[in-house]
Design a protein around this nucleic acid. Structure first.
Length: 597
RNA sequence: CGGGCUGUGGCGCAGCUUGGUAGCGCGCUUGACUGGGGGUCAAGAGGUCGCAGGUUCAAGUCCUGUCAGCCCGACCA
């Protein structure tokens, strides 16, 4: 039994000024956590209690799925990370340190290498596979900007698991097993979530999905549609409109458009000039074809220019672009680069000089909306000149398409488009609480993890990695369930089942009866947090109970004279009186309606 | 790493413009009253004003530097 008279906690009446998001504010105010370092938090008894419950649920679901728990050190040697290049690739986000002899170590940001080596150490036959092992471990990442309390720290707890399979079909199965286990886990945690497809980045065709808790405090932007489609913005495939016939399209003509280096100035000029005005409607930015040049830096250091053609009403989304061109990294096209490519006239770049076989030789990829037969106003490769009715497939042929344009609310939903429906996308924010990933053979190859197959041949193992942010999930649950009175935990993770308030001076008959009931509840497996403080007024106790957020609040007070106590549901705020005689029975039943322990 | 804001008892803040005894509310301690919604009264404890230089007879206040926190952006297996 927890007693508020002795519990190591101090609730705050006001929000600390350095906390912004609700979960952070409330967990500080209710005495669950204290900041200990930039991006590092101390768990106080109430917080640690909740943390352990979340961890227990995660562990139970992993075990139930047949995954086996192991535990690595957080302090790791450099060599394995050297083999996969991540010692350098991880960059400043990696916490590095040296021992007394100057030997390099790191604090593990994630453990793919170590798991791969462990399996290599022990296993060598296809008969040993499939295998899934996991750990619940403190991770370290030197985040440039820790924020929002537990939501992005530099030290946090992650459940990371890794699957090892002999072939792609096995990997797909392991992946689906994890997906199902994650769904069960988050449902038990009472955490609302959406599963969005994510980009696999440098890994090519591998599959990856994120579990996002759809909450404003989240850092991830995703899109969703009423039809159920949801995706990370990086993974959205823009539906291509139907190609238009080229025959009959008006001939392209170059027009003099002085002083129009930007889309806005160009559109204004088109609408102002009688000879250029459209008959059917005004010109808008979406009628123009903007050609953006970026420089790609390949892992080997090679730099390659890339031209991206997209409708003028859209910006290039750097995250979407990066996801497309990885492992190369896009950089700005500098003045020096322009100088090295004199055919490119800044502000007036047109498709004529773009493309692998053009005069510039620059690869030219366009937005999927630039389909054959579409007509555009675009640069004429001379300062102050644009070309109108330049028709794709007749006047220019791009080298391919690229998903690099920003996605905005109201864009057509790709899933709907496939079945000729017309749903539109809305933008939403989410907290990434889980990520499942078909890694493939990258780590197994780098670290030479092979097994013998049925034919006695060495084959490279294929892997998946799967993460749940355990400490982050605590904050996400707080965020998802809190209301304007305070925290409001689902019973499964709450620090107690019943918060019993003694609404009297204490040390009297009322207190004695409360003590008796609390003890009996505990003996029946109900976790009780008893507010037995004798010098604290009832109002303070009620406020604290609401702030602390235990799901059932029981008030033992003046009703006792009529043989009743009051029971309140923290979430719904419903209250009712129950007879003292049957109180324990009723409370036991109430606390078991949600399973736990 | 860029932009903005902020550092004054455990928490929230005022004081800084115009340099001169460090203040308020909450919390904490003691006592009395009160006892179903952060109650009342009285008496207390607790702060080298983020840090380091500088200007000055005198710096929380002015100047320079630096560190830290928060927010936005960049970054984020």
């Amino acid at each position: 039994m927890l007693r508020l008279s002795s519990l190591f906690v101090r609730t705050l009446r006001e929000n600390p000024s350095d906390a912004e998001v609700p979960s952070h504010q409330l967990m500080l105010r209710a005495g669950y956590i204290r900041r200990a370092a930039p991006g590092g938090f101390t768990w106080l008894p109430l917080g640690w209690n909740v943390y352990r419950n979340v961890e227990r649920v995660v562990r139970e679901e992993m075990d139930a799925a047949g995954f086996q728990e192991v535990h690595f050190p957080a302090l790791l040697p450099r060599e394995p990370y050297e083999a996969t290049n991540r010692w350098s690739e991880y960059g400043p986000n990696l916490f590095r340190l040296q021992d007394r002899r100057g030997v390099d170590y790191l604090l593990g940001p994630t453990h793919e290498e170590m798991f791969t080596l462990l399996v290599k150490d022990l296993y060598s036959s296809y008969k040993d596979l499939p295998l899934v092992i996991y750990q619940i471990q403190t991770k370290y990442r030197d985040e440039a900007r820790p924020r929002a309390g537990l939501l992005r720290g530099r030290e946090f707890v992650m459940k990371d698991s890794y699957s090892f399979d002999i072939d792609d079909a096995g990997l797909a199965k392991s992946y689906e097993d994890h997906r199902a286990a994650y769904i069960r886990t988050f449902e038990r945690l009472g955490l609302p979530f959406v599963i969005v497809s994510a980009m696999s980045g440098a890994m090519g065709g591998s599959k990856s999905e994120e579990f996002l808790a759809p909450l404003e405090a989240g850092e991830d932007t995703f899109v969703r549609c009423a039809c159920g489609y949801a995706a990370n913005t990086e993974a959205v495939h823009v539906p291509a409109p139907a190609a238009a016939p080229i025959d009959g399209a008006p001939a392209a003509r170059v027009v003099d458009t002085p002083g129009t280096p930007t889309i806005a100035t160009l559109v204004d000029l088109l609408n102002d000039r009688a000879d250029l005005r459209r008959a059917d409607r005004a010109w808008n930015a979406g009628d123009t074809l903007k050609n953006v040049i970026v420089m790609l830096r390949h892992p080997d250091g090679r730099r390659e220019p890339l031209a991206i053609g997209l409708p003028g009403d859209r910006e290039v989304d750097m995250k979407r672009l990066e996801a497309q061109v990885g492992p190369a990294e896009p950089e700005a096209f500098t003045e020096a680069d322009f100088a090295a490519h004199p055919t490119l006239v800044k502000g007036y770049i047109g498709p004529d000089v773009l493309g692998a076989s053009s005069s510039s030789g620059i690869r030219y990829l366009v937005d999927p909306r630039v389909v054959s037969g579409s007509r555009w106003v675009t640069g004429a490769n001379a300062a102050g000149n644009h070309v109108v009715d330049l028709t794709c497939g007749r006047d220019f042929t791009p080298d391919g398409t690229i998903e690099a344009a920003e996605v905005v609310a109201g864009d057509p939903c790709p899933a709907c488009a496939e079945r000729a429906a017309n749903g539109t996308l809305e933008m939403a924010r989410g907290i990434e609480i889980g990520h499942i990933f078909q890694l493939g053979r990258k780590y197994a190859e780098a670290l030479d993890l092979t097994v013998l197959d049925q034919n006695g041949k060495q084959v490279v193992v294929t892997m998946g990695s799967y993460g749940i942010g355990v400490s982050r999930a605590v904050a996400a649950i707080a965020e998802a369930t809190a209301d304007d009175m305070g925290l409001c935990w689902p019973r499964e993770v709450a620090p107690a089942d019943v918060h019993m308030v003694i609404a009297s001076k204490g040390a009297d008959d009322i207190a004695a009866e409360a003590e008796r009931m609390a003890a009996e509840l505990e003996s029946r497996g109900v976790r009780v947090l008893l507010d037995d403080r004798i010098t604290v007024s009832p109002g303070v106790k009620f406020k604290d109970a609401e702030l602390i957020g235990v799901p059932t609040i029981v008030i033992v007070g003046k009703g006792l004279a009529e043989g009743v106590i009051e029971v309140r549901d923290r979430a719904s705020n419903e209250r009712r009186n129950i007879a003292v005689a049957s109180a324990v029975e009723e409370l036991v039943a109430e606390c078991n309606t949600n399973t736990r322990r």
